[in-house]
Simulated assay, not measured.
Amino acid sequence: MTANTAQLAAAGVSIWLDDLSRSRITSGNLAELIETRSVSGVTTNPTIFAGALSNGASYADAVAELAAADASTDEAIFTITSKDVQDACDIFRPVYDATNGVDGRVSIEVSPDLAHDTDATIAQAKDLWARVDRENALIKIPATKAGLPAITAVIGAGISVNVTLIFSLERYEEVIDAYIAGLEQAREAGHDLSKLHSVASFFVSRVDTEVDNRLKALGTDEALALTSKAGVANARLAYELFEKKFAESRAAELVAAGANVQRPLWASTGVKDPSLPDTLYVTELVAQGTVNTMPEKTLEATHDHGTITGDTVTPNYADAHEVFEKLAAAGVDFADVTQVLEDEGVEKFIASWHDLQKTVADALAAAR
């Protein structure tokens, strides 16, 4: 019997692990997940690295070397995390080669402190790309207003990008436009478009958490009947927008010239509400050419009991539109929901980044 994760991959969904640590790399666990769970990529963020480094016996030697070299806290962070990403890229290199660059990707994020600074984001994205020095890396840039021109500039410089923290369809459309503009710049600069890849990370469970709180506050039968429906509906409408935008002449011309579409990626797929099925944001978002980045708990739940029934996105566009009509009628201001989530998302990553800085600063001080 084919494993559920293998069935999911066969249905056109790339499974990326939302976690990375030195111990995963050195123990052989990452290589094992490629073999046994159809994992074809990895995403990281400041929260993941803060967790990895706080349990950091496996980082002791690296910290000691950096302390002896009198490295600053941020220099130590980028040295350590870049090394983890480099090594993970090497493990995934056969996947990258076998999929012609589509998968085998490992993401590393620019500092969240730069989320509202376009020029600094561009500069750090270029620096991270050079540090990691692996063509199967992806540089993560948040989809803030300041992030949009940075996405265009970084793609235009021939660097592959994972756009993160997308919540609204309006912002997602701007992200696609920023990617297309970047491809046009890259073509003008003589870069090989076929080598440029991008994913657009659309967050799912956080949408349900915020909307459900508002539905409970409204308290009407109509409102409560919509509980836990917004996240999946929002993602399905994102895929509908993806299909529409990449069928338009501007994008189609670039694809005909060898460019790749920017794939939708479902992020925040761990279920927050324990009353929901633990594979909800996997089984209900199966569509060709998507990525689902999962925490290990969700990955294992999917492998164990996720029922894959084929495409669960494109046949359900009408239902998704209906959910949003009902949310509006019930009194949910979805534009406010997504702005709150973007602001909170940036703040949470900044807080994790500062935790990471403190963890590394303390480790450096102890090593000195």
Rank of each mutant, 00 (worst) to 15 (best):
G219K: 07
K326M: 09
H116P: 00
A363L: 04
V63T: 06
V282Y: 02
L285V: 01
E243Q: 11
L215R: 04
S201C: 11
I151T: 02
T227D: 13
T269Y: 11
V360D: 04
A366T: 04
L33Q: 13
S205L: 11
A62W: 03
I308H: 03
A251N: 11
A178H: 06
A98M: 01
R187E: 15
L341M: 13
A256E: 15
A150H: 02
T293P: 08
L285T: 12
V340T: 14
I350C: 03
T36K: 04
L165R: 03
A137K: 03
L241M: 14
V95K: 02
L276P: 02
T43Q: 10
N29A: 15
W129R: 06
D355H: 08
A257Y: 04
D61I: 00
E32Y: 05
A64W: 02
D319M: 00
F246G: 11
M1I: 04
I151A: 07
G101E: 05
A10L: 04
D212M: 07
A247M: 06
F167N: 08
D84M: 09
V42D: 10
T293Y: 14
L226V: 04
F92V: 02
T307N: 04
N100F: 07
I151N: 06
N4M: 07
R206W: 07
S249E: 15
D333E: 13
R24S: 13
A115S: 15
R368Y: 01
